[in-house]
Write a protein that binds this DNA or RNA. Structure first.
Lengths: 112, 112
DNA sequence: CTAACGTACAACCAAATGGTTGTACAAACG
DNA sequence: CGTTTGTACAACCATTTGGTTGTACGTTAG
């Protein structure tokens, strides 16, 4: 889509795909506030631990989240740098669309 | 993720999924500027007409795009209202993340 | 009218997704 | 020590995805 951004098409694909699932969005939300082990995350979803592990892996692959070992646990946290890049990406789209919508509004206004 | 938005989880799923493909993002970009028939869109991608038809259907299902018949053609255009809703959704995420990042920045600043 | 064009839709296929269970292993607990 | 906890990973499965080709049908052009 060649919006102003430093992200490749494949990275944008991965980011949007990672966010296209309610469980994964919830994991991002929770790890935004503070760290959480994979099992503590898994405790709140009606699916197996392994399934949650996979969701975390998808988020990790998109760079939205990082995992750091602490003892036998793996702490998951939202990665601020990648979130900032994703944020700029979303801003770029929002801005693009805003421009389009305002242009349409202007056309409608002219019609009156 | 329960961000401030009027969209259901399933709708958010569909929107992000629709945007998780470079061809579909390109179609949105092109129909943002002006209408385009499905075949005129398809002419620019290295895939069959039917494949492009399916991509348009995904965008349509997400509400990002509408199709209106004109003669034998079907004109595709980005839907301003849904784009505005998607824009607010993206804004909400960006804002959420911005808050988190700024909070982290503040913590780092305190450490110095 | 006939031919070409634009679309719809079904059938099919390979690969990816999203889930499961089972096994293995290191770390923490008692 | 042995047991439980947290994780990793493989195998498996059903469904979805993203692509294909082929057929049918209305619309436009000659």
């Amino acid at each position: 889509m060649v919006v102003q951004t430093e992200l490749s098409d494949a990275e944008v694909d991965r980011i949007f795909h990672a966010l296209a699932d309610a469980t994964r969005r919830d994991i991002v939300r929770r790890t935004l506030v503070g760290d959480a082990s994979v099992s503590s995350l898994a405790a709140d979803y009606a699916m197996s631990f392994a399934a949650v592990q996979k969701h975390v892996a998808v988020l990790e692959g998109a760079g939205l989240v990082t995992k750091t070992p602490r003892g036998r646990e793996r702490l998951v946290r939202a990665d601020p740098e990648m979130l900032a890049r994703a944020q700029r990406l979303l801003d770029a789209y929002a801005e693009l669309w805003r421009g389009r919508v305002e242009r349409l509004d202007a056309l409608i206004a002219e019609d009156t």
